[in-house]
């Protein structure tokens, strides 16, 4: 019994050192060596070389000249990368229903369309930081963005088509568009869509 207690203490320290310290530090070293950009958050820069966020994390878009992301439940006002998470509203939640109803009203009033609103535009994601939209949700917003930018919808459609990510290995996941990369592409093609970020 005493022997096993002593072994327990030694095994606690030995495994702690190996799997709690040596393992994560070695993986960090190797990752920084082999995949530095990925390991440090897949940051993206705009045309002027300014870091504007991570390719993998969604961010807020409100200007009419940009495509907008899904509703976000991360933090009080959404898109808070220090408070990832979903709304956790249940399927019979009145709050969920009312939020979706007001989103539908807003999206239709903003001039999206035509037709019913794709579900991802009125639901919040699991992480609250979903970087993507379904292709339908992007196409739905083309009329609004085209009008705000004074560009023909057909030209926008070309940019959108160039940004569609197919299913991985033909079958995995869903076809999608990364909203940040799409909006950066818009800025490259048609000029900056928003000024607050410029110096």
């Amino acid at each position: 019994m005493t022997t096993n207690l002593l072994v327990a203490i030694r095994a606690t320290l030995a495994t702690l050192l190996l799997t709690g310290i040596v393992y994560p530090l070695s993986v960090t070293g190797l990752a920084q060596l082999l995949f530095p950009s990925r390991a440090n958050g897949s940051l993206v820069k705009d045309e002027r070389g300014r870091t504007v966020g991570s390719e993998l994390l969604g961010q807020r878009f409100a200007a009419p000249t940009y495509f907008h992301s899904r509703p976000s439940a991360a933090g009080e006002g959404g898109w808070d990368a220090l408070a990832s998470g979903g709304s956790n509203l249940g399927p019979t939640s009145r709050q969920l229903h009312d939020r979706a109803a007001s989103e539908v009203g807003r999206l239709l009033a903003e001039g999206g369309g035509p037709g019913p609103v794709p579900a991802d535009l009125v639901t919040s994601s699991g992480s609250g930081l979903d970087p993507d939209l379904s292709v339908e949700a992007v196409v739905f917003q083309i009329p609004r963005v085209a009008k705000a930018r004074g560009v023909a919808p057909e030209r926008l459609r070309v940019v959108v088509d160039g940004q569609i990510e197919p299913r991985e290995l033909w079958v995995l996941g869903e076809r999608r568009v990364n909203v940040l990369l799409l909006n950066l592409a818009l800025d490259r093609w048609f000029g900056a869509g928003s000024s607050p970020g410029s110096p």
Partner: peptide, 21 residues
């Protein structure tokens, strides 16, 4: 609960789910 609204749910129940999955 969203059936009465002008929402296309052909992609299923997406509340709490990520588009890529």
């Amino acid at each position: 609960a969203l059936r009465g609204l002008a929402v296309s749910q052909s992609t299923g129940n997406l509340e709490g789910k990520e588009v890529r999955f």
